[in-house]
């Protein structure tokens, strides 16, 4: 697994590409919700996918969470999955803001819509910088109220050998709401990504 690690320069490069893509996604979200999104420097870590489910289980232990995942496929074997995690305590605020009614079906629909705005904007911004283009699978939604949440999360993580964990927090200033985004990329796609980063770095 160690041969998949990123050098400091590669990490910096990826971080900057993520930053730019995140800026575009935040702008979209801000327009969609009619509010301001506070941007933070995203943290990037290459972790073993099998450890992710435990990590999430710990982080979301105290509150119920909903997860929306979206698979993406690009050229030259670059593919992966994004996972958006929402804390449900805040979902009602956004539902009222966007005019969704206050029930579980609408909540799922709303989170799928928001995820779609965020992840497709983020991913297309990232793809453009990587000189790639992505197509997307249908989104999948998973609630922690579901009794098999932990199992399903573990299953999702195990599909990928390695995860590039990009912790992105989208925090709204006007409303109490935040969500986390995790980018999962399988081992061979990590190699492809690293090569693309080297190409970009060679230009500058």
């Amino acid at each position: 697994m160690t041969e998949l690690h990123f050098s400091d320069v590669q990490r910096d490069c990826l971080q900057e590409l993520v930053n730019v893509a995140m800026g575009q996604a935040s702008d979209k979200l801000a327009r969609y919700l009619g509010t301001f999104v506070h941007l933070q420097v995203p943290s990037i870590a290459l972790v073993e996918a099998t450890l992710l489910s435990q990590h999430f289980a710990n982080r979301y232990q105290q509150q119920s969470a909903t997860l929306v995942s979206l698979g993406f496929f690009g050229d030259q074997g670059l593919r992966g999955e994004t996972i958006m995690l929402y804390q449900l305590a805040n979902a009602g605020v956004i539902a009222r803001l966007l005019g969704y009614s206050d029930d579980a079906v609408s909540e799922a629909e709303m989170l799928t819509d928001i995820s779609s705005v965020l992840t497709t904007t983020f991913l297309s911004g990232l793809a453009e910088q990587l000189e790639n283009s992505f197509s997307y699978a249908a989104p999948r939604i998973l609630s922690s109220r579901d009794q098999y949440f932990a199992d399903k999360l573990a299953y999702t993580a195990e599909q990928w050998q390695l995860a590039l964990q990009v912790d992105i927090r989208y925090q709204l200033t006007d409303y109490s709401f935040n969500c986390d985004m995790i980018l999962l990329i399988p081992g061979e796609a990590v190699l492809r990504l690293r090569q693309t980063l080297d190409n970009i770095l060679a230009e500058f």
């Binding site: 930053n19 730019v20 893509a21 995140m22 800026g23 575009q24 935040s26 702008d27 801000a30 301001f36 999104v37 941007l39 910088q129």
Partner: peptide, 25 residues
């Protein structure tokens, strides 16, 4: 020169005296 291209942010930096705003990259 920023990736944070939200109109509110652009307005804020211009009010703080920035000459111009360039979207990254």
């Amino acid at each position: 020169v920023s990736a944070d291209i939200q109109p509110e942010m652009q307005k804020r930096v211009m009010e703080l005296g920035a000459l111009a705003f360039v979207q990254k990259p």
